[in-house]
Structures are given as C-alpha cells and as structure tokens.
Design a protein around this nucleic acid. Sequence first.
DNA 1: GACGCAATTGAGAACGATTCTCAACGAGCA
DNA 2: TGCTCGTTGAGAATCGTTCTCAATTGCGTC
Lengths: 166, 166
Amino acid sequence: MPTASNSGARAARTQQHAARTEAARERLKAWIAERGLKQTRQRDLIVDSFFSASGHLSIDELLARVSLRDRNIGAATVYRTMKILTESGLASARHFDDGQTRYEAALDRDHHDHLICTKCQTIIEFENERIEELQDEVALEHGFTVTRHKLELYGLCGKCRAKSDR
Amino acid sequence: MPTASNSGARAARTQQHAARTEAARERLKAWIAERGLKQTRQRDLIVDSFFSASGHLSIDELLARVSLRDRNIGAATVYRTMKILTESGLASARHFDDGQTRYEAALDRDHHDHLICTKCQTIIEFENERIEELQDEVALEHGFTVTRHKLELYGLCGKCRAKSDR
DNA sequence: GACGCAATTGAGAACGATTCTCAACGAGCA
DNA sequence: TGCTCGTTGAGAATCGTTCTCAATTGCGTC
C-alpha cells in the first residue's frame, strides 16, 4: 500500500509525464503535418503509451502497454510509429547487448551514456563532459569528425555485487 | 603493379600473419584438447582464413574467404568455429551498427575502442588510458563495477569528409 | 591398423527481431 | 460528402543466427 509521500511522488511523476506527453504530441503533430503525413488514433495511443512510461522500452514492452488500451494494434504499427518518433528526434533508439532495440524519450534531452548491470539489467544514464572532450581529441588525431557516439559500461550494480559477494 | 617497397611490405605482412596464425592454431589446439573437443580440417581452415585476414570480418566475409579454399564448408560451421574462437579468447565479437556481428583477432591484444566512418565503413582502433580511467570513476560514482565496456565513435573519416565538402 | 564412440559436419528447418505486402480502412482536404 | 492517398493489421518475407539430425570423422583404445 502506498504511503502519503509515495503517492505524492507518484502524482508529481504522473503530472510530469502528462506534460511531457503533451509536448511530444505537439511536436509530433507539427512534424507529421510538415510532411503530409496523417495523425491517427493508433499513433496517438502509441505515443501516449511511450511517453507516459519511463526508461528504455523494447517494442515488446511497448506493445504490451499499448495492447492494454487497444488490443487490436499490431506490432508493425508500433515499429512504424517508433521509427517516426526516432526520425523526428522525439525518441532515440539504443542497441544494447540483449539483441533488441530499445527506445528512450529524447525530448529536449542532452546526450548521455549508459551503465548497464549485466545481472539485473538496470540501466543508469550518465553524462561526462570530460570523456566527450577526450573522444573528440582522439577522433581529431585520426582525422575523424564525430557525429555521434556510443559509450556503454557493462558490469554489476551495487546491489547485485553485494548479492554475489555473499 | 606493385612497387618494390609495396611487395616488401606485403611480404612482411604475410609473414606476420603466418606467425600470428601459427600461434593462434597452437593456442586453439590446447584449448580444444583441454575440453575433449576435436581438431578438424574445417576448423583449421576457418581459423587460418580468419587470422590471415585483417580487420573486422563478418561471418559473410569470412565464409566467402573460406569458400575459396573449400566450397563445401557450411555457414553453420563458420558460426560454430567463431563461437569457439571467441570463447577461447582468440577472437572477439563486436556489434557495430550495421546489424551483423564482426570478429577481430584478439590474440595478445590490449583492449581498444573504435572509430567508424559511416560513409566508407573504415574502422580505426584506438586506445585512450585517460578515457578508461574516467569511465571507472563514473561507474564508481554510481556504485558499479565495470567488467567490460564499449565505446564507438561514428563519424566521417578524413577522406570522406574531404569528398563531401566538395 | 581397426574399432567404437562422442564430437563434428552440412543442409535445411527453426528462430527472433524487424520489415514488407496488400487489401481494407480512415484522415483531411475540396 | 466524396476522393485521394497515407495508414492499418495480418501474415508473409527477410536477415542474421542457432538448432536439428543423419551422416561423417577425430582420436583414444585394443
């Protein structure tokens, strides 16, 4: 059962998600209109489901959420919608080592990298300005111009390490 | 047509590859024997082909090379052999953003990361001690113990940038 | 060198993630 | 309201990879 502070936190989070979803929908609407595409019930539902969740969703997970609201939406539509969200810059696709593509909300977010626990699959995001600078230096030394990068640290999170030490 | 210095360089490279292949075969032989596995003509041929090539080979590319020497070797065997090489530490598998697994020789090599040209697919390897240190620091801040990491910088190499500037 | 058995092989089936195809549907403009 | 063209769902197709299975082959043993 939720404590007062828990439900307060949840309410705040819900509100934040609502605002985020709202903004995303606006941006998507504009992006879609620009290209002569159409806004559909299915897309709205998928976008809503995506932005009201948090973390790094796989298509499976997202489809599960979407199906709760409309069991007729097909996987192909989820794939197609996430492709649109990715192209419009509202979501970004990540390929961790588990074989499936995961998506995260990219709305007004800075670039960041990931720490992934190989045991419990927890994914933590971090940013490190100095690492980015060093990357650019390295690239420059080799005549490269970096357009994007991927840095993933795999290991054990504190909890899992404690467990395996026992 | 090859110049004198070119063919000299090629000879040296060939010799180097031969030595590398030799060492790899020895190590694999020991590793295979330890676990009661068997050495076969096919495995030898695949290992030879792999170590005498350079760079980051996909299964397709490796199979093409192998087929030149024995057209009866199946893809499954190449997959199986590369799995063995990976498990024995003689090769390491990389997953760049092109959807297929690529393998590189890992014989006595230090850890390194990659710079990848998104235009011509050139892959350059680099090492940077300072970046690795910073990664460990970041991980520590989040209570993680890093066991492995992946750093890939995607962008344009010098040549491709020059071309696209025109 | 022959024997026996477990490991290996090649071919094709199976698989999981993703994309394509196509007929039916529906958004948005006239 | 009607038309046009993008979108949808379902299933087929695709791609990389792994599995299955019958036939083959290392390799330790006699």
